[in-house]
Design a protein around this nucleic acid. Structure first.
Length: 577
RNA sequence: CGGGACGUGGCGCAGCUUGGUAGCGCACCUGCUUUGGGAGCAGGGGGUCGCGGGUUCAAAUCCCGCCGUCCCGACCA
């Protein structure tokens, strides 16, 4: 049994720590490769992972930071079931979502596995909170969520079962919600700073949560699935799903008094059209046909832009791409020669990006191999002018903060102003001072601890392994013992381990017998604790003791006298005091 | 859900085209030597080749179906 007299410190001999030499064959993301190689996680099935004892240390350190910061803003921890009666989800119209795991109990009662807990916490709030005197409240939990993801991927980054810190605020009015939202915003900043991440707070889409305002917390990483548009100074930052920008207008020149048809044989794409006409793509309009529930929609953006599906969906609702035959039927031409002029507004709804309100454009003529030039919105066709395009890097941010860059990010947390989306259908109401019944105003706030850990790996690694931020490393100090159990080095290393632990550090002592020094060094690099101390024959009897910082590889030689204090000092330097 | 790839000792892979004794590296076990950056020698254990069906005298290999996993896209608090 490995002795561990100090909370948080480990002797390694006899512990389960399954490292591997090779990258797993099916891993792509760096955090996926390294989390498996460093023995932090093991896969059970697609999107299902077991966390090993040493991996759990990292997760628990993230969770400890979260608990401290949530408690600091007065949030209270509780714990709700993962399995819920379906009726509660039916009440908010969220029963039957495609990602929801559904089942029946033995008596045939419909149940669901929780993908989140808005419904459940609101159900409780509706029963327990009655008076303005009961408000405000902030409740949180760190609990398992289950989502039947269409495509689990990238190791622990996108999984079907994971733990989430989710909190919920209950306020009497909008001002109260604003305070709760602000408190969470400040707590989140401290949490992600303490976890050692580079992160952005960005405006986000309210999505399926509904509500009136939302921000996402994003860690930049090439493994990220979301994209943020931001200025270099950070004054503007938004998920591309809703990012806006000032497009650069080309020199349109004079518009002809009416659209002029011209032949464009065999031209099917904007690139080809730009080459054929010698005009800048920004003077060409792209026409995309989709089918919404109400019928066909022609969506138009400038040639250099892309239609953003989510933005479009905000305007026209759920939709799909149109089939070739449908397009023929509605427009009398094939994709490549489509345009808005002459289209019957009774059959086809036309939505045009805001950029098209300026200038005149080349569009398809709805005759194969023919385009029109000089097409003007408002004069030659009517359309709803709306924002449906994706911003491009280099375009100017709306606030004057400069040019936008597009960066891939991992979503590590989010905060939502829910308003009454859940409290209303679930009947969470209270009586105000005047005795009037009012609906409770809610917010919800999430963080994925495992994503925080994986983002830290994405942002901190080199060819040899992980470089943990001091705040969430599995250990503060990793002692590599070179020598047998009964050697003087072992005796010294064990004493040093105790001494460092007494100083409040979490220390890993690699006292595994029979391993070669090289293997221990390689695995220490893989694991990536901030400081590595080597105790070998060179150390004794007179020193020096070698300490290496994982991040910089900087080596420090310490005299044996006062070594533990000196190491603690080095650690404080790395951890930021 | 569309497209693509892969499934062979614990891990990483070869063998499949052209059917005929299941192989390599690492890991593992034993012994000796070694011990400050994934050791050397010798010996050894471990695989119904994802599952089911078919073709054949004979299937890891050919055919059909299914399952699993990964990647791209769609999707996605």
């Amino acid at each position: 049994m490995p002795a561990s007299p100090y909370r948080g410190s480990w002797r390694l001999a006899g512990r389960f720590w399954p490292t591997v030499r090779d990258d797993p064959a099916d891993a792509e993301a760096i955090s996926h490769k390294l989390s498996v190689r460093a023995g932090l996680v093991r896969q059970l099935a697609a999107g299902l992972y077991t966390v090993t004892p040493i991996g759990l240390r990292v997760i628990q350190r993230v969770e400890a930071i979260i608990r401290e910061e949530m408690d600091r803003i007065g949030a209270q921890e509780l714990l709700m079931p993962v399995m819920h009666p379906a009726e509660i989800w039916e009440a908010t119209g969220r029963y039957g979502l495609s990602e929801q795991f559904r089942l029946e109990d033995r008596s045939g009662r419909k149940m669901v596995l929780g993908m989140t807990h808005e419904e459940i916490i609101t159900w409780h709030a509706a029963r327990e909170l009655r008076s303005y005197r009961d408000l405000p409240q902030s409740w949180y939990q760190i609990q398992t969520k289950l989502r039947d993801e269409p495509r689990p991927k990238s190791g622990m980054l996108r999984v079907r079962e994971f733990t989430m810190k989710d909190s919920y605020s209950f306020d009497a009015d909008e001002e109260g919600l604003e305070r709760s939202y602000q408190a969470h915003s400040e707590a989140y900043a401290r949490i992600f700073d303490r976890a050692g991440l580079t992160w952005y707070r960005v405006e986000s889409d309210v999505g399926m949560m509904g509500g009136s305002g939302a921000h996402e917390y994003m860690a930049p990483s090439s493994a990220g699935e979301d994209v943020v548009a931001r200025t270099a100074d950070g004054s503007y930052a938004a998920n591309v799903e809703l990012a806006v920008s000032k497009a650069v207008d080309p020199d349109f020149g004079e518009a002809p008094s009416a659209p002029e048809p011209f032949d464009t044989p065999g031209i099917g794409s904007i690139d080809e059209l730009a080459r054929f006409t010698g005009q800048h793509p920004a003077t060409l309009a792209k026409s995309v046909v989709v089918v919404a529930e109400s019928g066909p929609v022609l969506a138009m953006v400038r040639g250099e832009h892309q239609v953003h599906e989510k933005k479009l969906a905000h305007v026209i609702g759920p939709h799909r791409a149109a089939h070739a035959e449908e397009i023929r039927q509605w427009f009398g031409a094939d994709p490549g020669s489509l345009g808005p002029v002459g289209v019957d507004p009774g059959t086809v709804r036309i939505v045009a990006d805001l950029t098209l309100e300026r200038g005149h454009y080349v569009t398809g003529a709805n005759r194969d191999g023919v385009h029109l030039r000089g097409v003007v919105l408002g004069r030659d066709f009517q359309a709803e002018a709306v924002d449906i395009r994706t911003v491009l890097p280099g375009e100017q941010a709306p606030g004057g903060g400069g040019a936008l860059e597009l960066v891939p990010v991992i979503e590590i947390g989010n905060i939502f102003k829910l308003g009454t989306k859940y409290s209303d259908p679930l009947g969470a109401r209270y009586l105000d001072e005047a005795g009037t019944e009012r609906t409770i105003i809610m917010g919800s706030y999430g963080i994925g601890p495992a994503r925080v850990a994986m983002a830290a790996i994405e942002q901190g690694h080199d060819d040899d392994g992980i470089i943990w931020p001091a705040g969430i490393a599995p250990f503060d100090v990793h002692i590599v013992l070179i020598g047998d159990h009964d050697s003087p080095q072992a005796e010294y290393a064990t004493a040093l381990w105790s001494e460092l632990s007494d100083l409040g550090l979490q220390v890993l002592l690699d006292d595994r017998p029979g391993l070669r020094p090289g293997e221990k060094f390689v695995e220490a690099d893989l694991l990536g604790c901030p400081l590595r101390v080597t105790v070998g024959k060179r150390t004794l009897p007179d020193g020096p003791l070698e300490v290496q910082a994982r991040a910089t590889r900087e080596k420090t030689e310490l005299p044996l006298e006062g070594a533990a204090e000196a190491i603690a000092g080095l650690w404080r330097g790395i951890a930021g005091g």
